[in-house]
Amino acid sequence: MRLDHSTDNVSRIRDMAVRMRKMALDMALSAGAKGSHIGGGFSAMEIMAVLYGEVLRVDPKDPLNVNRDRLLISKNHCTLAHFPALAEKGFIKEEELESYAVNGSRLIGYPYAPEIGIEYSGGSLGMAISVGVGQALAAKKKGIDYNVYVLMGDGELNEGSVWEAFMSAKQFGLDNLIAIIDRNHLCYDGETEDVMMLGDLNAKMSSFGFNTIGCSGHDISDLLRAFYSISAAAPNAVICDTVKGKGLSFAENRPEWHQKAITREQYDTALADLMGGKVI
C-alpha cells in the first residue's frame, strides 16, 4: 500500500483529527446528561482520521461500490470518532452530527446504514472480526482487490470467538484482512491486565499467523507507517497503543469515563487544550 508520509500530508490529517475532536466534544456536550462513550471514542480518534483521511478507498458518491474497502467497527462505542470521520469524508453533512443521540435519528445507538458508510452494526463485542473474515474471503473468491479493516478494542479480545476468527484468517490466507486493535489498556471495570490479562499481545497475534505491527495510536505519522507495513503474505494486526479518553485531561486513563456526561466546564477545558496544541 502506498501511503503519503510527507510532512504536508501528516499535517493535513492531524488538522482533520483536530476538527474531528472538536466535533466529538460538541457531540458529547449535546448528548447532555445521558452522556456518551467518551473513553473509547477519544482513544480511536487518530486511528479513524488516518483511516478516512488516507487509508480507506471509499467514496461517499458511490458508497456501495463493490471494489471499496470495507470497515467494520467492532468496538462500536467509538461513534464519537466515527461519525465526525464520516462528516470529514463527506458521507454525511457536518450539521447532521447535531442529531447525534437524538431519538429516531440515524446517528443514535449502533446504526447500520451502508449508504452513509456505516457498514456494520456492532456493539456486542468480538463478533465483527468473523464477519470481516467472511468479507475478506469473498474478495479472494471473487478476485476483487478490496481490503477489510476491522476496528477492535483490546478488551473485546477476551471474547473467545475472536480467536476462532483469527485462526480462520490465517487458515484461509486472508492477507486482505486488517485487524486494528485500539490498545487503550482499559475495559469497563479497569485495567485490561487486571480484569483479564492480554499479556504479550504482539506475540499472541504473531503466533496466530498474523503480520503484527505496533504503533503509537495518536501519532499520525506512526499510524501511517503502520498501515504502510501491511503485508501481502499474511493477515495483519495493527496494534495501536492509545490512551482511553485521550485529550480530555480529566478523563484520560480513567475507567469511569467509558460512558459519561461532560459538563460545560470540562468541555471548555478540553477544547482549550485541543486548540492550544496540547493534545496531538
Binding site: E119, V131, V133, G134, S161, S168
Partner: peptide, 22 residues
C-alpha cells in the same frame, strides 16, 4: 467451506459472505 469446530465463527463468516452477495 469448513471452518473447523468453531460454530460462532461459522455464523459470522456466513454473514460476511452474505453481505458480499453469497
Amino acid at each position: 467451506l469448513n471452518v473447523g469446530i468453531a460454530e460462532q465463527n461459522m455464523i459470522g463468516i456466513s454473514a460476511g459472505l452474505a453481505m458480499e452477495g453469497y
